[in-house]
Design a binder for these strands. Structure first.
Length: 827
DNA sequence: GGCTAAAGGCTTTTT
DNA sequence: GCCTTTAGCC
């Protein structure tokens, strides 16, 4: 507040459009910022935070919630730059992030994990303790699989994946297992309810929570515990939520509970911009920013009505619309706008630019995925050689991860540097998961699922029979399997197995100081602990042996990955230590007490530093997202899913696989809302491009080993021809299955750019799966299967995954899913 | 108990 | 086509 300049000329407000400025300056109540793609959303949020601080708000009283860690990091950096100036040039690249004391910018999940650590004991949540670990998806599935089997159900009828998603949806709707059970009134739902309960029981036993619990438990805690709610509301007076269109019910509840009711105006005296006598009460300072046209997480429970009904949820809310796009050229924007207008369930809003010129969007129909990949590799090479666009300003977007493979091959061949945005990939590798499982057991010996993964890996003579006996003891005495291992002699297991169990327990005890994390045997640093785990578990020697035996490069890599894990622990450690950040002082990222609540109770049980750090490390590992790996500093093309692309922008982008069944995905065919979400996904992809955009569609695509004819995506026609140029480069193909007439039809349709014909072709192809199944395979007809040979169709069952019962001469009767079976009708 | 080979099932997107 | 599970053998 030392600046002499008037508000209007203040640097923090310079270069803003009137609505942007309004969004930055608004005080005194809830605000909805409807920010169209590329309209300067991030800019508005970071300026708003900086402005609040500039006007005297305490940084620690500001909470900004984003969708990914990466978005949070960037936001924090921008705010820091705005307030403290750009980083000094001599600052090393790996220096700790400069902080604005106590400013909280994180993801919903990371925030909730912290709140859980801090308040779980106090909130007295059933079955949850503050020392919980977060179950990664693989462990969730393992637990569910066990639950399904224990319930005497088959994993074919109750695939853990779909059971998990049912449970996850329930949690996102804030339904506990009991509430879910109370509502269940048919076999399916009562069964899911049973599995839900068993799953919860398993989580509690393991001292674990899942991703959804983090949100659900915090929402419950804030709702039911006035003291905790009050503490949070007192701390965070200013709330900002990014990507609000993608919040689900629980996230909405958390935001609502954190925002509170607002306060009487006299309590606001001294707060930025509030004149005490202008209003009696002022709503909570919650500012949400989003774009309904970019809502792409409906499948994860995101509820678009959160943003559409914001004014109802927060009476008196101010709405600001940002429509001007500063990112893309007119043709790209035109194409995006034309496409998104096809959605019926939307509020039409202007999307415009004052940029003139720009190349039209290029739509290319290619032969197959190899052709597609080569075309893009060539295009990128040309752009790079013309030095118009650096590698890092290029990206490829696709609907499903499987599509990255062929692109990778093409890029390798063309010697184009590339990175794939898959932050989770590293932690999903077998050897890394092994090491993490050991670490989870070290952090939490009740974690039976992690224990099961590593207790006999590498093999140490603890076979299935012995482990079953030990598990039985654990079951009977209702104790963790790890405890039962200590009592292996009682189980009557083979002497060799008993000895192995003792050695295993001894190893873990050595690492944890028998649970105390104190004493001579305990490591001094996290990196040392990780290194010791890898070494003493014999994982290192195991994988060294594997590598030596096979001599293959990918096995060599495993050892490097284990080393990499040690380094990442070291890096984490450096950032974790609050003392390493001189500016932070009272901004310890894990300490939410100081300085606003000096009387806060200390945690009941002091957690040893190493254990606290290990937990934090495992937590950060569990909460990485694919999008977090996107690093603009790298001189490489980025490959990623459309979902991961949200919020990013590139000079030149390629969007591949615009085919029916892929984009829009076949899973969305049956439902109009889901189709509209697919359309928004395409819209997100298009609007990522600043200057150049190529969209490709392959006539043939090999999926799971079988080459299939495709139908061009409806979105291609919907983009229109005004802003896009369509070219067919697929005519070089020679396919035996295609009659000359068909070939003529395709080429004629495409060469003329006559997408109406293509669309008609698609319409007939996209008829409902059931009708098509009956039409294509009438009962009694003869078909040929690539492996089983000829057979007769006995019965056809329609539905989402149409099946046919076929009697083969060679193998007898088989039920085949038509989608996968590659049947050809012969008679 | 532990390894190997063959068979079976299946894929959307993510914190 | 790939990964996971299972059966069979040492």
């Amino acid at each position: 507040m030392t600046e002499p300049a008037s508000d209007n000329t203040h640097p923090l407000l310079q270069g803003l459009t009137p609505p942007q400025r309004e969004a930055v300056l608004h005080t005194g109540g809830p605000m909805l910022v409807l920010a169209a793609a590329g309209s300067g959303k991030t800019r508005v949020i970071s300026r708003r935070i900086a402005w609040l601080v500039h006007k005297g708000a305490a940084p620690w009283s500001i909470l900004a919630l984003t969708f990914t860690n990466k978005a949070a990091g960037e936001m924090r950096e921008r705010v820091t730059d705005l307030l403290l100036g750009p980083p000094p040039p001599d600052m090393p690249a790996d220096a700790p992030p400069r902080a604005v004391r106590g400013l909280t910018v994180t993801t919903f999940h990371a925030l909730c994990a912290r709140l859980m650590r801090r308040y779980a004991e106090q909130a007295n949540l059933p079955g949850v303790k503050a020392d919980f670990t977060i179950f990664p998806t693989a462990d969730q599935l393992a637990l569910l699989k066990r639950a399904v089997k224990d319930a005497d159900l088959s994993t074919t009828n109750w695939p853990p994946r779909s059971v998990l998603s049912a449970i996850s949806n329930a949690k996102n709707e804030m339904l506990t297992a009991d509430q879910y059970a109370a509502r269940a009134n048919d076999f399916y739902h009562t069964t899911i309810a049973r599995l839900y309960k068993a799953y919860e029981h398993g989580l509690h036993r393991a001292g674990a929570v899942d991703f959804d619990d983090l949100l659900l438990l915090v929402a419950t805690m804030l709702r039911d515990n006035a003291e905790i709610r009050g503490a949070c509301q007192d701390r965070w007076r200013h709330l900002l939520v990014d990507e609000y269109q993608d919040t689900n019910k629980v996230q909405f509840e958390i935001a609502r509970l954190l925002a509170g009711e607002g306060r009487p105006a006299d309590a606001l005296a001294g707060m930025p911009g509030i004149e005490p006598d202008t209003a009696k009460t002022v709503g909570p300072d919650i500012c949400v920013v989003g774009d309904p046209d970019q809502a792409i997480y409906g499948w994860r429970g995101a509820d678009i009505s959160n943003i559409l009904d914001f004014e109802t949820h927060f009476p008196g809310a101010r709405t600001v619309k940002l429509g001007q796009n500063f990112r893309s050229t007119a043709p790209i924007l035109g194409a995006a706008d034309t496409l998104i207008k096809k959605n019926t369930r939307r509020k039409d809003k202007p999307l415009f630019t004052d940029k003139a010129g720009g190349e039209r969007v290029s739509v290319v129909l290619c032969r197959d995925e190899h052709h597609e990949a080569t075309l893009i590799a060539d295009w990128f090479t040309r752009l790079h050689e013309g030095s118009t666009v650096p590698w890092r300003e290029m990206a490829v977007f696709y609907r499903t991860n499987a599509l990255s493979r062929v692109m990778e091959e093409a890029f390798r061949q063309a010697r184009i540097p590339y990175v794939i945005a898959r932050g989770t990939a590293f932690y999903e590798r077998e050897e890394v998961r092994d090491a993490l499982s050991y670490l989870r057991v070290v952090a939490n010996q009740a974690d039976d699922i992690s224990l099961a993964r590593i207790v006999n890996k590498p093999t140490r003579g603890l076979g299935k029979t012995s482990l079953d006996r030990i598990a039985l003891l654990a079951e009977r005495e209702d104790m963790p399997v790890f405890e039962a291992l200590r009592r292996a002699p009682e189980t009557g297991a083979a002497p060799g197995a008993v000895k192995s169990a003792a050695r295993f327990v001894e190893m873990i005890d050595g690492l944890t100081g028998s649970g105390s994390f104190m004493g001579a045997t305990v490591s001094g640093t996290l990196a040392e602990l990780v290194a010791r785990v890898i070494d003493e578990s014999s994982l290192a020697s195991h994988y060294r042996k594997v590598a030596n035996a096979s001599g293959s490069e990918s096995d060599e890599e495993r050892l490097d990955n284990l080393d990499e894990l040690v380094s990442s622990a070291r890096d984490f450690e450096a950032e974790f230590d609050p003392l390493s950040d001189p500016i932070a002082e009272d901004a310890d990222p894990l300490d939410m007490d100081t300085p606003f609540d000096p009387d806060a109770d200390a945690p009941a049980v002091p957690v040893p530093h190493l254990l606290a750090m290990l937990r934090a490390f495992l937590e950060s590992v569990a909460l990485v997202a694919d999008a977090d790996t996107v690093d603009p500093e790298q001189g490489a093309v980025t490959l990623m899913t459309l979902h991961a692309a949200k919020g990013l922008e590139f000079d030149a982008a390629a969007m591949i696989g615009l085919e029916e069944g892929l984009l829009p995905h076949s899973r969305a065919f049956e439902s109009e809302p889901e189709l509209e979400e697919e359309r928004r996904l395409a819209f997100v992809g298009i609007t990522r491009a600043r200057k150049l955009l190529h969209i490709t569609s392959a006539r043939y695509r090999t999926v799971r080993g079988a080459t299939e004819r495709t139908i061009p995506s409806r979105f291609l026609t919907e983009v229109g021809t005004e802003h896009a140029h369509v070219s067919d480069q697929s005519d070089a193909y020679d396919d035996v299955d295609q009659t000359p007439r068909e070939r003529e039809f395709d080429r004629g349709a495409a060469v003329r750019g006559d997408l109406e014909r293509v669309r008609e072709q698609r319409r007939s192809g996209a008829a409902s799966a059931a009708d098509r199944a009956h039409e294509e395979y009438p009962e009694g007809c003869t078909v040929r299967h690539p492996q089983f040979g000829e057979g007769r169709v006995m019965r056809v069952m329609g539905g989402q995954h149409a099946r046919a019962v076929v009697k083969f001469g060679s193998v007898g009767e088989k039920t085949l899913v038509l989608e996968y079976a590659r049947l050809r009708r012969v008679l």
